[in-house]
Amino acid sequence: QLNAMAHQIQEMFPQVPYHLVLQDLQLTRSVEITTDNILEGRIQVP
């Protein structure tokens, strides 16, 4: 299920590496919260 959620987020934010999306999802278990984390700059994109 997390993989499906990660792919959904990757479609919206292809610039964010998959492993970072998955790592955040493991903590949040939420597409909405992880999306917010990306938008708020809480996930550092190399």
Results as ranks from 00 to 15, higher is better:
1 Q>T: 14
1 Q>S: 14
2 L>G: 03
2 L>R: 02
2 L>Q: 04
2 L>I: 12
2 L>P: 03
3 N>H: 15
3 N>W: 14
3 N>R: 13
3 N>V: 15
3 N>A: 15
3 N>P: 07
4 A>P: 05
4 A>S: 09
4 A>G: 09
4 A>M: 12
4 A>N: 09
5 M>I: 09
5 M>V: 07
5 M>H: 05
5 M>T: 04
5 M>G: 03
5 M>S: 06
6 A>R: 02
6 A>L: 09
6 A>N: 01
6 A>V: 11
7 H>R: 14
7 H>W: 13
8 Q>H: 09
8 Q>V: 12
8 Q>G: 07
9 I>T: 01
9 I>V: 10
9 I>D: 00
9 I>G: 00
10 Q>C: 12
10 Q>N: 09
10 Q>L: 11
11 E>R: 14
11 E>D: 10
11 E>V: 13
11 E>H: 07
11 E>A: 14
12 M>L: 11
12 M>V: 08
12 M>D: 05
13 F>P: 00
13 F>N: 03
13 F>C: 03
13 F>A: 01
13 F>M: 03
14 P>E: 03
14 P>Q: 05
14 P>A: 04
14 P>I: 03
14 P>C: 05
14 P>Y: 03
14 P>W: 04
14 P>N: 05
14 P>V: 03
15 Q>F: 14
15 Q>N: 14
15 Q>R: 08
15 Q>P: 02
15 Q>I: 07
16 V>Q: 01
16 V>K: 01
16 V>H: 04
16 V>R: 00
16 V>M: 11
17 P>L: 06
17 P>T: 04
17 P>H: 04
17 P>C: 05
18 Y>Q: 05
18 Y>L: 11
18 Y>W: 13
18 Y>G: 04
18 Y>E: 04
18 Y>H: 07
19 H>D: 10
19 H>M: 09
19 H>Y: 09
19 H>T: 09
19 H>K: 08
19 H>N: 10
19 H>E: 13
19 H>I: 10
20 L>M: 10
20 L>W: 08
20 L>I: 09
20 L>K: 05
20 L>E: 04
20 L>R: 05
20 L>H: 04
21 V>I: 15
21 V>E: 01
21 V>Q: 00
21 V>M: 04
21 V>K: 00
22 L>W: 10
22 L>P: 00
23 Q>A: 15
23 Q>T: 08
23 Q>D: 06
23 Q>I: 11
23 Q>R: 08
23 Q>N: 09
23 Q>G: 07
23 Q>M: 12
23 Q>Y: 07
23 Q>P: 01
24 D>A: 03
24 D>R: 00
24 D>E: 02
24 D>M: 06
24 D>F: 05
24 D>S: 04
24 D>I: 05
24 D>C: 06
25 L>P: 01
25 L>F: 02
25 L>R: 00
25 L>I: 06
25 L>M: 02
26 Q>C: 09
26 Q>T: 11
26 Q>F: 13
26 Q>G: 08
27 L>W: 10
27 L>Q: 12
27 L>F: 10
27 L>D: 11
27 L>C: 10
27 L>T: 12
28 T>P: 02
28 T>Y: 07
28 T>C: 04
29 R>Y: 10
29 R>F: 15
29 R>V: 09
29 R>C: 12
29 R>T: 09
30 S>G: 02
30 S>P: 03
30 S>E: 04
30 S>Y: 03
31 V>Y: 08
31 V>E: 06
31 V>T: 06
31 V>A: 08
31 V>R: 06
31 V>C: 09
32 E>T: 10
32 E>G: 08
32 E>F: 09
32 E>N: 08
32 E>Q: 14
32 E>D: 09
33 I>A: 14
34 T>H: 00
34 T>K: 02
34 T>M: 00
34 T>Q: 02
35 T>D: 01
35 T>G: 05
35 T>R: 14
35 T>E: 05
35 T>V: 15
35 T>N: 04
36 D>Y: 14
36 D>V: 15
37 N>C: 02
37 N>Q: 01
37 N>K: 06
37 N>T: 03
38 I>C: 04
38 I>N: 00
38 I>G: 01
40 E>M: 14
40 E>A: 15
40 E>N: 12
40 E>G: 12
40 E>W: 10
40 E>R: 14
41 G>W: 06
41 G>E: 04
41 G>C: 09
41 G>F: 05
41 G>S: 05
41 G>Y: 05
42 R>M: 07
42 R>C: 09
42 R>F: 07
42 R>I: 06
42 R>T: 06
42 R>Q: 05
42 R>A: 06
42 R>P: 01
42 R>S: 05
43 I>P: 02
43 I>E: 02
43 I>M: 08
43 I>N: 03
43 I>V: 10
44 Q>H: 13
44 Q>R: 12
44 Q>E: 10
44 Q>W: 13
45 V>N: 11
45 V>P: 09
45 V>D: 11
45 V>F: 11
46 P>S: 12
46 P>R: 07
46 P>T: 12
